[in-house]
């Protein structure tokens, strides 16, 4: 524990040292205390909160649309071999296009509005979710499916009671990866598809006005939010896992 906080502390001390002695100009790297000051003032003016709320809403809409679509698609090509043969090759080919590359095209189609931002996030959340749902479904042991057919499970019941629960760990991995992806793409979308509000705007605004403190505040906010979200998802995954293991013990 002590070892792991040594380096961050040293880095902050180093930061303080090179800025306070004037060795590095504040336009390149501001004083730590100024960053905190800007952070607090933005926070108290509720402007920071507004940026955060808008960004969160964006990322959540895109993420939810993306995982819903990814889950359905993954289930489709996982359950049906023909479906896989028809859709999977196209899906894999499309996956090779870096997400960011879609931005110019989508902007041309939908203009600089909210829709393309959410769409880009949704696409980026779609791929990991679809892929992990697919592998999860395909890795369900055939013994379970045999067992269910012995008990006369019909297709829908089989999917609901056997296949989805068995594929759950992989599906949860998909959700985690999708969320991470959405978060990364959110900032890119906000930087590349101009928007009046959002954390990305906060950062690029800071850059345009050479306000280094604001740039750093934006980066730190994004990092903290990303960290909290990852923690929440991991907690959720653990709760689900624990529920499963209790289930198995019974």
């Amino acid at each position: 524990m002590l070892v792991s906080i040594t380096l961050p502390v040293l880095l902050i001390l180093f930061w303080q040292l090179i800025t306070s002695t004037g060795y590095v100009s504040p336009h390149i790297l501001p004083l730590p205390k100024n960053v905190i000051k800007i952070f607090l003032s933005l926070f108290s003016e509720e402007r920071l909160m507004l940026h955060i709320v808008i960004s969160l809403r964006r990322v959540m809409s895109g993420f939810l649309i993306g995982i819903a679509a990814g889950f359905s698609f993954g289930l489709l090509i996982g359950l049906s071999r023909t479906g896989e043969k028809i859709f999977a090759p196209f899906f894999h080919a499309l996956r090779q296009v870096p997400m960011i590359g879609w931005i110019p095209l989508i902007v041309m189609w939908f203009g600089m509005s909210e829709l393309p931002r959410i769409l880009v996030i949704a696409i980026s959340a779609f791929y990991p979710m679809a892929l992990n749902t697919f592998t999860g479904v395909r890795n369900v042991p055939s013994e379970y499916i045999e067992l269910a057919s012995v008990y006369g499970y019909k297709r829908l019941k089989l999917i609901r009671r056997v296949i989805i629960p068995a594929a759950l760990p992989s599906i949860i991995t998909g959700i985690t990866l999708s969320l991470g992806m959405s978060w990364v793409i959110l900032v890119a979308a906000e930087l590349l598809i101009e928007t009046p509000v959002g954390i990305g705007r906060l950062i690029s605004n800071g850059r345009e006005t050479c306000n280094m403190e604001q740039v750093l505040v934006g980066i730190i906010t994004v990092a903290l939010l990303g960290f909290i979200m990852t923690m929440m998802i991991e907690k959720l995954a653990k709760v689900v896992e624990r529920g499963r293991s209790i289930h198995q013990e019974l």
Binding site: V187, G200, R207, I219, G226
Partner: peptide
């Protein structure tokens, strides 16, 4: 945890 695109403006400034 930092979405690396957020660093782009910082990198350009530096």
């Amino acid at each position: 945890q930092v979405p690396q695109f957020a660093l782009m403006p910082l990198i350009i400034l530096w």
